[in-house]
């Protein structure tokens, strides 16, 4: 896998459907390499800073989501520009004050190495903190989705779970998912690419509004 996307010799931000930038980083669980997650889906997410209220609500929410993610073969990994000691103190504080034990590793990215690789710092918001970024990486190390939230707005973890379900359904069935799709609902059949296929699609027996718009159950 490439360590960073290159265009004309210049480093650029990660792009969808390209290898996620590789890294080795210190975490609350020890030294972690991205390759350690090979074979699992990964949600790599950044938060602005330890011991801040919105981030605390997010860590509680991600921890609550962890069992559902585990069922789907997804690992979580947090990151901020804080030290391992700060991370350890914060997760202990969360457990003490909220009764929630954070189960996933948190990268201590004091030198902003991983944050820079993934473009997690938005200078317009803050030059010293990472924004609320989410990177979904598949079992082959390919970056499959990115979400960016501003410092002020806590993430919706149910949407992240929905995104995982949609990506996994896409991989399993070779389909696309409509707006607000949830497991159990009908999916979109990719539109035909030839006139002949378009004619066949109209007779195929799917729930079809027109040749390019067909749905079916999975």
């Amino acid at each position: 896998m490439d360590t960073i996307v290159q265009e004309n010799g210049k480093a650029t931000l990660p792009r969808l459907n390209q290898p996620a930038p590789l890294f080795e980083a210190e975490t609350t669980h020890g030294t972690l390499r991205l390759e350690d997650f090979q074979g699992s889906w990964v949600i790599l997410f950044s938060h602005p800073a330890d011991f801040t209220p919105v981030c605390t609500t997010e860590f509680i929410a991600f921890t609550e989501l962890a069992p559902e993610l585990k069922k789907r073969g997804v690992e979580l990994c947090g990151l901020s520009i804080d030290s391992t000691y700060s991370h350890i103190a914060w997760v202990r504080n969360i457990e003490k004050n909220f009764g929630v034990r954070v189960p996933f590793p948190i990268i201590a990215d004091l030198n902003k190495e991983v944050a820079s690789l993934y473009g997690m710092v938005m200078p317009g918001e803050s030059k010293t903190e990472t924004s609320r970024c989410v990177f979904v990486i598949d079992p082959k190390g390919i970056l499959r989705a990115m979400i960016y939230y501003p410092l002020t707005t806590g993430r919706n973890t149910q949407e992240i779970l929905r995104l995982i379900d949609a990506l996994q359904a896409t991989d399993k069935h070779g389909i696309a998912t409509p707006a607000n799709w949830k497991p159990g609902e009908k999916i979109i059949i990719p539109p035909p690419r030839t006139t002949e296929a378009a004619e066949e699609r109209m007779k195929a027996g799917y729930e079809t509004a027109d040749w390019y718009f067909s749905k079916r159950a999975i």
Partner: peptide, 12 residues
């Protein structure tokens, strides 16, 4: 134990 943690530990 999650496989990623085993890989981390094995390296150490």
């Amino acid at each position: 134990t999650p496989l990623y943690r085993i890989r981390m530990a094995a390296r150490e």
